[in-house]
């Protein structure tokens, strides 16, 4: 069973604000799902390589040439928070 502090820690890692009710609910539901996953422990996979992609392809290269890209108008179209062709966010470093 996941503990409430564990749920809170994961929520922080995932950058999710959860209500108290959501924390309680996820504690129950995630624990149930994780219990279900325990079936995998039955399998000995010591000598089995992992699969990251079903159809593995490696080292996909392309020539280094310039292609048309989005206009700045397109790039900023979906936000109101921009200035001088840059996205504008709240301060990260604060004056002391």
């Amino acid at each position: 069973m996941l503990t409430l502090p564990e749920v809170e820690k994961i929520a922080h890692l995932a950058r999710l604000h959860l209500t108290e009710a959501e924390k309680q609910q996820f504690q129950q539901q995630l624990s149930a799902v994780l219990d279900y996953m325990a079936v995998l422990e039955q399998l000995d996979t010591r000598d089995v390589p992992p699969t990251a992609h079903a159809v593995p392809q490696q080292n996909i290269w392309r020539e280094d040439y310039i292609e048309p890209s989005l206009t700045t108008e397109d790039v900023f179209f979906n936000t109101s928070q921009h200035e001088q062709q840059q996205f504008k966010i709240q301060s990260v470093l604060l004056d002391e």
């Binding site: 995998l40 422990e41 399998l43 996979t45 089995v48 390589p49 992992p50 699969t51 990251a52 079903a54």
Partner: peptide, 12 residues
């Protein structure tokens, strides 16, 4: 996650 990727190999 690591375990799941290995079992994925067995299923494939």
């Amino acid at each position: 996650y690591g375990k799941a990727q290995k079992v994925r190999t067995l299923i494939t």
